[in-house]
Structure formats: structure tokens, C-alpha cells
């Protein structure tokens, strides 16, 4: 398969994804949106693994399998995160990260 996509293109796209994720993680005003930003970061890494495997090191499938595991673990992470967010909502009727201030220096 030669579709003309270079590995550098992929790395640029995933780097942009990664930093959008980091930016969103820091600035979003809703914990669900923070979780979504987190997904962007993790998926940037997963795309990296799969495309590096496909375009550069074609002899084995290490990267593809790593990508599969990342998807599974990311799902677990979101599940646990959402459960805790749900519990916070029940206790306090808000999921704004700025209001999580009970524990402070």
C-alpha cells in the first residue's frame, strides 16, 4: 500500500492532537470536557503507534498491538473517571473543576 502519506505528516497531526489535548485539559470548565481532552492525548499516542508500525517498521506488529491495548485501557480509564465524576455531581451538583477546592495548600 502506497498512498503517498509520509510518516512526518502523521507525526505532525498527532503532535497537534496531543497539544490540543493538553490545552483542553488545562482550560476546560467542565470535567467531562477534561476527560475528552485526555482522550485526545491518549489517542494521539495510539495513532502514532499504529502508523509508525504501518509506515516505518513493517516487519512486525508491535505497534498495532500496543494501539489495541491503549484503546482498551483508555476505555477503562474513562469508565472509572466518569463514575467518580457522577459521584461528585451527586454530592455537589456541579462538575466545574474550578469549584473542586476543598483540598488546597
Amino acid at each position: 500500500m502506497d498512498s503517498g502519506i509520509q510518516i512526518s505528516d502523521i507525526l505532525i497531526v498527532t503532535a497537534i492532537m496531543f497539544f490540543i489535548g493538553v490545552y483542553g485539559f488545562v482550560t476546560r470548565k467542565n470535567l467531562i470536557a477534561v476527560m475528552m481532552a485526555l482522550e485526545l492525548i491518549i489517542n494521539a499516542a495510539a495513532i502514532n503507534f499504529i502508523m509508525i508500525n504501518k509506515l516505518v517498521f513493517k516487519t512486525n506488529l508491535h505497534g498495532v498491538f500496543f494501539g489495541l491495548f491503549i484503546i482498551a485501557v483508555a476505555a477503562v480509564e474513562v469508565a472509572i473517571g466518569l463514575v467518580i465524576i457522577l459521584n461528585l455531581y451527586r454530592l455537589r451538583d456541579s462538575i466545574d473543576p474550578e469549584e473542586i477546592t476543598t483540598l488546597k495548600h
Binding site: M35, I41, I42, A44, A45, A46, I80, N87
Partner: peptide, 21 residues
């Protein structure tokens, strides 16, 4: 306790995302 859990899961996710990258 819930706040501590949220802080841990979000920052652990960020750390593992950065580590994966």
C-alpha cells in the same frame, strides 16, 4: 475523598498519556 479520586484519575490519565506519547 471524591475530590481526591477525581484529581488522581485525571492527573494519572494525563501522566500515562504523556508517557505513551
Amino acid at each position: 475523598s471524591t475530590e481526591a479520586g477525581i484529581k488522581l484519575i485525571l492527573l494519572a490519565g494525563l501522566a500515562s498519556g504523556i508517557m505513551l506519547y
